[in-house]
Simulated scan of single mutants.
Amino acid sequence: MAQRLILILLLFLIGDIYFYQAIITLFSNPLIHVIYWLIDIVVLGAIIVTIFLRKRISDIQRYASSLITAMLLIFIPKLFSVPILLLEDIGRLFRNFPPRNFYVSELVAVLAGIVFLAIIFGLTRGRHFYRVRKEILHFSDLPEAFDGFTITQLSDIHSGSLSNIKGVQKGIDLANAQNSDLLLFTGDLVNNMASEMDPWIDLFTTLKAPYGKYSVLGNHDYGDYTKWSSTSLKEANLMRVKEIHSEMGFKLLLNEAVLLHKHGQRIALVGVENWGKGGFHQFGNLNQATAAIPADSFKILMSHDPSHWDAVTVDHAKHVHLTLAGHTHGMQFGIELFGFKWSPIQYFYKQWAGLYQRDGKFLYVNRGFGYHGLKGRVGVWPEITVLTLKRSTDQVE
C-alpha cells in the first residue's frame, strides 16, 4: 500500500514539473512562478502532516476529505499535460531542444482548464448524477419461472455523507422506476454511526420490489472507523444499524439464505457479513450461509467486498452463480468513456466496477449510491444496477 501511495505522489510530481514548463512558457512574471510552487508546497505539506498525525486525530476523515479535494483540483488537471508535453519533448530532442512552442503550452493550459471544470462538476453535481447500468445475464440452469427475472442493486449509501434531500430522492425515484422484481442492497448503510441514517429512514423505506428487499452489512456498518467510549456503545450501535434495515423493510441476511419462490420453482438468495482482504474484517461465512439450502439451487450471493469473490466464492464447493458486491465506489474518480474504464482503484482491487465472469460464475461490482471521503464523484458516477436473469437455450441435461 505504501509503495502505491509513493508511486501516486511521484506521478503528481511528474505532472507538476511538466505543467510548470507550460507555465513558464506562457508567463514570464516570477511572482506567478512563486505562487505556483507555494500552492503545491502547502498542499503537499498538509498531506504529510495529516499522514503523520493519522493515529492522533479522531476526526481524520474530515481533514482527509478536504485534502483529497485539493489534490484533485490541483494535481489531476496537470497530469493531463504530461502526454502532450512529453510528445513535444520527443520532437524537441531531434531538433536540438529549441524553446517550447507557445501554442502547445496554450493547448496544455486549455486542456487543464477543461479537466478542472470537469472536476468541479463532479464535486458539485456528480454526487447525485445517478446512472442506471443494465446487464443481461444468461444461465443454462436458471429455473424457467425466473427467466426474465429482474434485480435492482444498490450499494454503499453512506448516509453520514448525504445532505441533499432532493438529490437523494432523485436516486430513490430512479431505482423505483426500474420496476424490478427484487431489490438488493450490498452494504455500507452508514459511515460510522447508526444515527447518521435517522433523517433518511422514511425516504429509503419508499423503495419497492414485489419479491422483497434484502440487504447485507458492509465494513463501515460495524462502527470500526470512529472512537467509542466503551465496547457496549459500539455493540449497541451495530444493533441499531441492524434494526434500521428492518424499519426500512429490508431483510438483513447475516451469513444466511432465503429461498425465493415463483410458480412452484425457487432460487436461493444468500447474504454474508463483510469479508475483505487487506486488513478488513472477515466475518462472512459462506459455508454457514449455504448450509441449509439445497445443493442444486440456483444461488445469488450478496457480499459487500468484491475481494471475497476471488478468495472464497469462485472456488467454493457450492456453485454460486451470481455474486453482487460494492465497496470500491470506483474510488469515485476515474474515466469511463466509450467502453474504456480506468480508475486508480484498479491497482488495489482486481474487480472494482461492473461485470466480471470466470468459470461460468458472474460477479457484479456496483459503483455505489452515495459517497465517502471525497465529497463528490468525478467520472465514476453513482450507480443503480439492473440485472436481468435469462435462461439460455443450451439447457443442462
Rank of each mutant, 00 (worst) to 15 (best):
D188F: 03
D188P: 05
L189T: 06
V190T: 13
N192M: 08
A194N: 02
E196A: 10
E196D: 13
E196Y: 12
E196H: 13
D198E: 15
D198H: 12
W200H: 10
W200D: 04
I201R: 11
I201K: 14
L203G: 00
T206K: 15
L207D: 09
L207Y: 08
A209M: 07
A209W: 05
P210H: 05
P210E: 05
G212P: 01
K213T: 09
L217F: 11
L217G: 08
N219R: 10
H220T: 05
H220W: 02
D221W: 07
G223P: 01
K227P: 00
W228K: 05
S230C: 09
S230I: 07
T231C: 00
T231H: 06
S232P: 00
S232E: 15
S232M: 09
L233Q: 14
L233G: 00
A236I: 02
A236H: 07
N237T: 10
N237G: 08
L238N: 06
L238R: 12
L238V: 15
L238I: 14
M239G: 07
M239C: 03
M239A: 14
M239Y: 11
K242P: 01
I244F: 07
H245Y: 15
E247C: 00
E247L: 14
E247Y: 09
M248W: 08
G249I: 10
F250T: 02
K251F: 02
K251W: 01
L252Q: 04
L252E: 03
L252I: 07
L253G: 02
N255G: 12
E256A: 08
A257C: 10
A257V: 00
L259E: 15
L260A: 08
L260G: 02
K262M: 06
G264P: 09
G264L: 09
G264C: 09
R266N: 09
R266D: 08
I267P: 00
A268L: 04
L269P: 06
V270N: 00
G271T: 10
V272K: 02
V272F: 05
E273I: 02
E273M: 15
E273K: 14
N274M: 11
N274C: 11
W275D: 01
W275K: 05
G276D: 04
K277G: 06
G278C: 13
G278A: 12
G278P: 12
H281P: 12
Q282Y: 10
G284F: 10
N285V: 03
L286R: 01
L286E: 00
L286G: 00
L286S: 00
N287Q: 12
A289I: 03
T290F: 05
T290W: 07
A291H: 12
A291R: 13
I293M: 10
I293F: 09
I293G: 04
D296S: 13
S297D: 15
S297T: 11
F298I: 11
I300R: 07
I300E: 05
L301R: 02
L301C: 08
L301M: 10
M302A: 07
S303M: 10
H304V: 08
D305H: 07
D305W: 06
P306Q: 08
P306K: 01
W309K: 02
D310G: 13
D310W: 01
D310C: 00
A311S: 14
V312Y: 04
T313P: 03
T313F: 02
T313W: 03
T313I: 09
V314P: 01
D315G: 12
D315K: 13
D315M: 07
